[in-house]
Design a protein around this nucleic acid. Structure first.
Length: 952
RNA sequence: GCGGGUGUGGUGAAAUGGCAGACACACUAGACUUAGGAUCUAGUGCCGUGAGGCAUGGGGGUUCGAGUCCCUCCACCCGCACCA
């Protein structure tokens, strides 16, 4: 009976499906384990062999945990909103719903092919309205919240309103405008619009202005990815920055918590560092310089307040609002020219010409807050408008860029570092003491920093300040294929659908706000999204009769109208909206009254293992952490970090194959002979190549132009291709489809081979050739159970050696799975089968546990063997074989004997052998005596169970 | 420049400080076969006929003992970067 993987895999997939073997209940009697994959965006290209790597690893882990007695949640879904579907719709007119549906079906088929243990009943799709209903709901929670900096948590905005009514915003810093201050009297006198505008400055989901890429020729706003080299990717049209009102999430308020709680997570250091860098915390001080002879003052941010006496000039970002105000008439033309020059410089130019020193003097002087000295104010593109305050105090003796700037423009340099500053280069090292700095002289950097901040605060000219690189997250997209906002504008003031004035109208007040059908996907007017074209949808009328309630609104009434004219928000949410909380929905996917019940989220809690690529380091992983914290603050869930353990799978790269066409001919020369000719390198589909040997017939059929190609072979008559490792991609013809591999070798072989390739977190090239070894292994394992005629498993009692192999394997596999070392697990199975085969073992007491042990890796063959051995239930419902120490303990060990660290011989000793006995026996051994060369013994090292070292 | 990571046979790779190269691929020879892209056996880091010596990017150190720990240099990969 041969290993007929095709039949076996087909049969058991059907069985699992019909018997709902992978159905997961929220059964609280068992300990839980939540194993999650980053859900895919269902692209039109389908899966290649690189995609399932992480899914296979998580599937193995999930199955292992289930067999070990856990209730395991291991779901899958689709991140279905996104730009490609919309672009495709724009080109072909096919509705994204249709293409998305089609792509998902294809993905589903490919995933099912591999035999994952997902409970598809829990599937989520971000584009389903019963899912995005809750995405909109969470957005509203963020809209109705503000961040209390004192208690460091998000709170309902209603509490804030109460405070404002009682005492204004005293002591409640406004994140949108830190200078904002008003008392209760002011607040109560505010108009509706003023109140709403003020609250907007506090909300966690808020509106502000931001620049987007606008392409006049295409009449649309473009994503960063769609702008390449300063022109639109499509068509190569010019693009410009356009300021638009947009939604934001106030993630900056969470910056500190997002940094701090990284320490509690089991993520790779690289991943944590990426997040830390992205958040970019730096501490220092803000210093205020009054502008001489005017009202204005310049606030700078510095991480080195200790160098305050070394300030020789000030630099503003050219875009700084003060630039225009402080520039003197004498310098205005030069400054304008310079600002114009900076505008003309693309990001790319600025990035590639970092060393270029440019700038312009404004003619203005600022007054040094501690010395009273005049400090010239310059503008330069090396100061970025978007970071810090957009202005710096330049200390040329201590900062390389300031130094280069001072040298270039002949600005006199104050030395505050004594001998350490040579005049040649800035002394930017953070060591030693500060000199030539009044009361700071002689102090260490740390001391001087403290003293300087103190002095500045005393003078009311500055304060301690922590600055973050992180910006608030833009949450508006001028697109169609995304979640609509549950927001309606009345007199240009945004209201949430669940606010009284809106929710009075049931159609408007109920979630979800369904994404409406559109005729086409062209952008709306003035950079708005396609939804803006739907006038009937955008414009709504809300009857006012009875709509008074607690609202202070008087819309309509004063105007003698019976209805309120309102219009909907026409932007949609960004791709990361739906993926920021999907892991919560899996816990309770059919709940239509909550995003997930508290009972379900309390039970499943954090994701125990999250597997995915590093490309989401600062996007998805940061946003979902923030959403989790916000939901936690507002009391909706009981944990504030979503992913306890994160495992990043490496990329599987493509291995591209090349053929070499002799220039201007249709003749191809094999790899080793290509240097004898002038050749063109041509990528050839890797699927026509067996290892490096080209399948000439397949190649000829590939393209008509190759049909009558001729070939110069190697001396052995083969055509050998060149090879190179590249990213797996269609255009490089190196894509390998898992379906093809599964068809040829079976899903079990495919799963084990992907794991066998190497450590899960390392990138490595795909090599179809190597899969033979794993396939041979499964066939060999099969032959432990079957011969030509059928089952050959006996009920004989196993020998010690057989038990030892089994239990060594169980131990190793369990340890390896727990440390995610799946490649070594596969090796161990191979060792186990090789040894059992060598012993001719066909015993049930060994083979039945082995079938269960391999179930996480090769579930189909495991299930077949398990049933062939007479079991009725699914193998996944039994328990993982238990490791028993007694089978592997040995009472003696063959010790390597080293003389001076060099292994020279081996000797067998009982494990409890007495040290003195071992020493005397070893020292009288002939080989040992020979290698000691008559030298006296210096030291005898006997490490029980390890080795023996004789030092002479 | 800063941060993170990786360097071991022809290839993918193993190795709680304890016999480096397990397990595979590929290759070589052989067996069984009409056949082999099936199966099995043996060999396969380098030098050396051999005994033996040399080998984990280079150099140094700690240790009885280092691929593993420490220092230093080099190369490659990833992320960030005129960040004040």
């Amino acid at each position: 009976m041969d290993y007929n993987f095709e039949q076996i895999e087909k049969d058991w997939k059907k069985y699992w499906n019909e018997n709902q073997v992978y159905k997961v209940t929220n059964d609280t009697s068992k300990p839980k384990c939540y194993v999650l994959d980053m859900f895919p965006y269902p692209s039109g290209a389908g899966l290649h062999v690189g995609h399932p790597l992480g899914y296979i690893a998580s599937d193995i882990y999930a199955r292992y945990k289930r067999l070990s007695g856990y209730n395991v949640l291991h779901p899958m879904g689709f991140d279905a909103f996104g730009l490609p579907a919309e672009q495709y719709a724009l080109e072909t007119g096919q509705h994204p719903v249709v293409t998305t549906e089609k792509n998902i079906a294809r993905y589903r088929e490919q995933l099912d092919n591999i035999g994952f243990c997902y409970d598809w009943d829990r599937q989520v799709r971000t584009s389903d309205s019963n899912y995005y209903k809750w995405t909109q709901w969470i957005f509203l929670q963020l809209f109705h919240s503000w961040y209390d900096r004192k208690e460091n948590k998000a709170k309902p905005i209603s509490e804030l309103i109460t405070k404002f009514e009682q005492s204004g915003n005293v002591g409640i810093t406004c994140p949108g405008n830190e200078k904002l201050s008003f008392d209760a009297h002011h607040w109560n006198a505010f108009s509706e619009k003023e109140k709403r505008d003020t609250l907007m400055q506090y909300r966690i989901a808020y509106q502000g202005y931001a620049q987007v890429w606008w392409c006049e020729a295409l009449g649309t706003v473009l994503a960063n990815d769609e702008v390449v080299n300063g022109v639109s990717e499509r068509g190569g049209h010019p693009v410009e920055r356009k300021n638009m009102r947009q939604w934001f999430l106030r993630i900056t308020e969470y910056a500190e918590r997002l940094i701090n709680s990284l320490d509690t997570l089991d993520w790779s250091e690289a991943m944590k560092e990426m997040q830390r860098n992205w958040i970019g915390k730096s501490s220092g001080a803000e210093v205020v310089f009054k502008v001489k002879g005017g009202e204005a003052s310049i606030t700078v941010f510095t991480t080195r307040p200790d160098t305050i006496f070394g300030v020789d000039f000030i630099v503003l970002a050219p875009e700084h609002t003060l630039t225009d105000i402080i520039t003197t008439d004498a310098h205005r033309e030069a400054v304008n020219n310079y600002v114009q020059y900076v505008k003309s410089r693309s990001e790319r130019e600025r990035m590639s010409e970092v060393k270029l020193v440019t700038g312009c003097f404004t003619g203005a002087y600022a007054i040094h807050p501690l010395t009273g000295k005049d400090v010239p104010v310059w503008i330069s593109e090396y100061v970025l408008a978007g970071y810090g305050t957009g202005a710096i105090m330049a200390v040329p003796s201590g900062d390389e860029r300031d130094h280069a700037f001072a040298k270039h423009f002949n600005i006199e340099i104050t030395n505050i570092f004594g001998d350490k500053y040579t005049g040649q280069d800035a002394f930017s090292s953070k060591t030693g003491t500060i000199e030539n700095s009044a009361f700071l002289s002689g102090k260490s950097i740390a001391e001087a920093t403290e003293a300087a901040i103190q002095a500045l605060e005393d003078e009311d000219a500055g304060e301690r300040k922590i600055n973050y690189r992180l910006r608030d997250a833009g949450f508006s997209r001028q697109r169609y294929w995304g979640e609509p906002f549950p927001i309606v504008y009345i007199d240009d003031i945004p209201y949430a659908n669940d606010e009284h004035v809106i929710s009075y109208d049931h159609n408007l007040g109920t979630l979800p706000v369904e994404l409406p059908q559109v005729e086409n996907y062209r952008p709306g007017p003035e950079g708005q999204g396609p939804l803006a074209n739907l006038e009937d949808w955008v414009n709504v009328n809300i009857p006012i009769s009875g709509n008074t309630g607690n609202d202070t609104l008087s819309f309509g009434e004063g105007r003698g109208e019976a209805i309120i004219h309102a219009s909907r928000e026409t932007n949609t949410m960004p791709g990361y909206a739906g993926s920021s909380w999907y892991f919560l929905r899996y816990m309770d996917p059919h709940n239509d009254s909550e995003f997930a019940s508290r009972k379900a989220t309390d039970y499943w809690n954090q994701v125990d293992l999250y597997i995915g690529g590093t490309e989401h380091a600062v996007g998805h992983l940061l946003y979902s952490r923030m959403w989790t914290k916000a939901l936690y603050d507002l009391g909706h869930i009981g944990f504030d970090e979503p992913f306890k353990k994160l495992l990043n799978q490496g990329m599987i790269q493509g291995s591209t194959r090349f053929v070499y066409r002799i220039a201007n001919t249709n003749q191809f020369v094999s790899f080793k002979k290509k240097n004898q000719y002038e050749v063109n390198e041509i990528r050839v589909d890797v699927n026509f190549v067996n290892g490096l040997e080209l399948d000439i017939e397949a190649f000829k059929k590939w393209r008509p132009e190759y049909a009558d190609a001729t070939f110069i072979m190697e001396d052995d008559g083969k055509y050998i291709c060149g090879a190179e490792v590249e990213k797996m991609s269609k255009s490089k013809y190196n894509v390998v489809n898992p379906d093809d591999i599964v068809a040829q070798y079976g899903a079990d072989t495919f799963r084990m081979y992907e794991m066998f390739l190497g450590p899960i977190d390392i990138s490595k090239p795909w090599d179809t050739k190597g899969i033979e070894g794993v396939h041979r292994f499964l066939k060999k394992m099969w032959r432990l159970y079957f011969d030509d005629k059928g089952l050959i498993v006996t009920n004989e009692t196993p020998t010690d050696a057989e038990y030892r192999i089994l239990h060594k394997t169980i131990k190793k596999i369990s340890e390896d799975i727990e440390r995610f070392s799946f490649n070594t697990s596969v090796s161990q199975f191979m060792i186990c089968v090789n040894e059992l085969a060598a012993l001719g073992c066909h015993k049930r007491a060994i083979l039945e546990p082995l079938a269960v042990a391999i179930c996480p890796f090769a579930p189909h063959i495991a299930e077949e063997l398990w049933h062939q051995l007479g079991n009725e239930t699914s193998a996944i419902n039994t328990t993982y074989p238990k490791f028993e120490e007694k089978y592997v303990t040995e009472n003696s060990k063959n010790y390597p004997i080293a003389i001076n660290g060099k292994p020279r011989t081996e000797m067998e000793f009982a494990l409890d052998a007495d040290a003195a006995y071992v020493e005397s026996t070893v020292l009288t051994d002939e080989t040992v005596i020979k290698w000691m060369e008559g030298k006296p013994l210096k030291k005898f090292i006997y490490v029980k169970g390890k080795m023996i070292n004789v030092v002479v």
